[in-house]
Design a binder for these strands. Structure first.
Lengths: 131, 131, 131, 131
DNA sequence: GTGGTCTAGACCACG
DNA sequence: GTGGTCTAGACCACA
């Protein structure tokens, strides 16, 4: 379900945070849904539980999730209002465009790269539900 | 000339490296061109000279630049062969697409985001062939 | 300078946070002042550095302090506006009164306890500067 | 009858313990009185019964209450001698004063805060002698 | 030197 | 079982 890139300059806990945020934004995770338990996710990602804890804590700080002691971590009510798909994507699009320009590519070339990547990428999970 | 984002999990020296690499790929920097001196660039970016040194050192290790003692740092001959615009962009496009799908967006929405970002982005620097 | 109580149900990192917040509120710490370095404070309090890091991070999240990588942790500009002495004390006063009432004490007895504690407590640090 | 604050670093079972202790100290609970049953209190506080059990167990360990199998939990004879209102309050007063000083407040300001909190606080429960 | 991230593993609180 | 706090100690990024 989750995927991590273990490279320099891409803290694991931020990757976890970002993925959860995107799933909330897409509606794949809805208010009230349980997140995987800290230990479960840690095991799944082959990561230290503390790293997951940290990701969850920051999401809680931002009111995207809430934790109930002894029960688990849940998507907070109203979380979908804070995690807007368009806004999250716009930022990434900006970065992508910036780099494409620095590489001296034309708009067409950049778009072609996206289309190509879209084709070769597998079908998304249940996020396909968004029209 | 250079731009830095000072946020968590985005090492400055990697950003410097990446920007230089992209300029080499785009042809904005050609074999034999001088890079700004360590001190100059450090001052310009308001960064510790050691950070620039580190970026240059790794570029040298990858044979993209070469330092000539007492003269400066130059783009290496053949650097453009190692820094392929398409390859560099493809990786970013993949990431972009992956996130867009996680956000539950359609291909059209993703492309629209790129087009929009392209429009609202300023003209590139001296990155040549972009009209 | 700092004091910790190591008892159940009083997380160390929260105590550190609270003390720093109170010093900002009192003016003992002003915008721009450096906090003790993570390692220094950890050693002073005989606590694990990570515990201090955690306290500092949450303060940063609340914009009470800001960290400059490689330089240190500083009191943020405008921090004094967020840390209001009266507000911080009012909450504690409420708790104190609640417990005093539960103990069946009169207002006079409660006030007497505070006066007595005030007398037997040492002079404060430089927080005495506030009139 | 009981009130809980569900925040970080304020174990529920300790809050229960402390409240019972204060009521014993105040005379609101006398030797021989029955405490609410574990299940009743658990339901009332919307807490897991085990948490109440734990609070009662520690009170029993300190000889403030005693459990009679099949009958319930009772305030122990002589409990009032161990739970002294003044002593319990003195500790809290010390903490309160310490924080007030750290906040740079004067004695008068601290006392005013207590008086104000006293006024705005509701009448206590059955804690007797408070007018 | 500074702060940042991560691991391994212990012990506590709660259901 | 769940999450929360803390430790000891490693390695990285930055000044």
């Amino acid at each position: 379900m989750f995927e991590l890139k273990r490279d320099r300059g891409n803290p694991v806990y931020l990757q976890i945070q970002a993925q959860i945020e995107r799933r909330i934004a897409s509606g794949a995770l809805c208010a009230g849904d349980v997140l995987p338990s800290v230990r479960t996710l840690a095991k799944q990602l082959r990561v230290n539980p503390n790293t997951v804890v940290r990701a969850y804590r920051e999401l809680e700080f931002r009111d995207l999730v809430e934790t109930r002691h002894g029960e688990g971590t849940f998507v907070a009510a109203g979380a979908e209002k804070q995690a807007q798909p368009r806004a999250l994507l716009a930022e990434r699009a900006r970065e992508f465009v910036h780099e494409a320009k620095e590489l001296g590519l034309t708009k067409e070339q950049a778009l072609a790269a996206v289309k190509s990547a879209w084709r070769s990428s597998g079908k998304p999970g249940k996020s396909g539900q968004v029209a």
